[in-house]
């Protein structure tokens, strides 16, 4: 169980793992996530399921190296068995025939938006996807996103590819050209989701966001992942991960995500110091 069957580096710091887990592969729906605990002393990290193949019994996880655990996971070889994978967790995306749905993915947020775009398209919606990155080389999953929607629009912060600017600028263009939008789904870094929601609020466009706070158990037991939505406390793991973006307190979310920054730095520095020797071997593996 939980064996890594494939591993791909999508861009610098972004890794894709295909993992054996027939039960989750069969059961998961767009918008759901898993919790991975790599080793005995590992932490439980929530990761959105980017794709699944029920026939092969596999799920796909795409993640960015942002600290010790993700760094370690990006260095695991094919064939490694993850100690624990729990899921599918969270409520699935409410997929229906809405009309025109715009799916926005910023940075690593393209990975979780991908299954939602495809599910929306399969449900008969006209899906326009907007994906963005800092620069062209960091843009991920362009081909897969193209296949998952009717129209794909791209932005880069530095203008190296596609629209020069942020995903919000592209969304404004879509509105300006007269496209009637029934639903926006946005996933990415908190500042991106926050800014996009400000824009869609002025445009009066219903917007769903998928949140990625700190979690521990992921089953509603601990409350580490609580966010304020519409003035009420919600648990992202069981009430979400998707919420009405116009109701989310993004400022609080951002502060809560930073709660363990000093410890995260300590852990990562320690891991990097220990991993100097091992690094070469992994590189030699061609991983």
């Amino acid at each position: 169980m939980h064996r890594i069957l494939e591993k791909h580096v999508l861009t610098e710091g972004v890794t894709e793992l295909v993992i054996e887990d027939p039960r989750i592969a069969r059961k998961r729906k767009a918008g759901q996530f898993v919790i991975v605990k790599m080793t005995e002393m590992g932490e439980r990290i929530p990761l959105t399921i980017a794709d699944a193949d029920p026939d092969k019994g596999t799920i796909t996880l795409i993640f960015q190296t942002v600290g010790k655990s993700t760094d370690q996971m990006s260095k695991l070889p094919v064939g490694f068995e993850l100690m624990d994978v729990v899921g599918p967790l969270g409520k699935p995306t409410h997929v229906d025939k809405f009309g025109t749905v715009v799916c926005v993915g910023g940075g690593i947020g393209v990975a979780p938006v991908h299954p939602i775009a495809r599910a929306m398209k399969d449900a008969g919606n006209h899906v326009i996807s907007i994906i963005g990155a800092r620069t062209q080389s960091l843009l991920i999953m362009e081909d897969r996103m193209k296949a998952a929607c009717n129209e794909l629009l791209i932005s880069t912060d530095d203008g190296s590819y596609g629209y020069h600017g942020f995903v919000t600028g592209v969304l404004q263009q879509v509105v300006d050209r007269g496209t009637k939008i029934d639903l926006v789904v946005a996933i990415g870094p908190v500042p991106m989701m926050s800014n996009l929601c400000k824009l869609t609020k002025t445009l009066n466009l219903k917007t769903l966001v998928s949140l990625n706070p700190i979690m521990v158990d992921g089953t509603g037991m601990c409350g580490a992942c609580r966010v304020t939505v519409g003035g009420k406390t919600k648990f992202v793991c069981v009430d979400g991960p998707e919420f009405d973006g116009h109701e989310v307190d993004f400022v609080e979310l951002m502060k809560r995500q930073r709660a363990y920054l000093p410890q995260e730095r300590t852990a990562w520095d320690r891991f990097k110091a220990r991993h100097v020797g091992a690094k070469k071997e992994v590189a030699a593996d061609g991983a």
Partner: peptide, 13 residues
């Protein structure tokens, strides 16, 4: 999660 033994355990406190 054995956070009392952080950073031996990955979960912080």
């Amino acid at each position: 999660m054995k956070a009392y033994s952080f950073p031996e355990a990955d979960t912080p406190m």
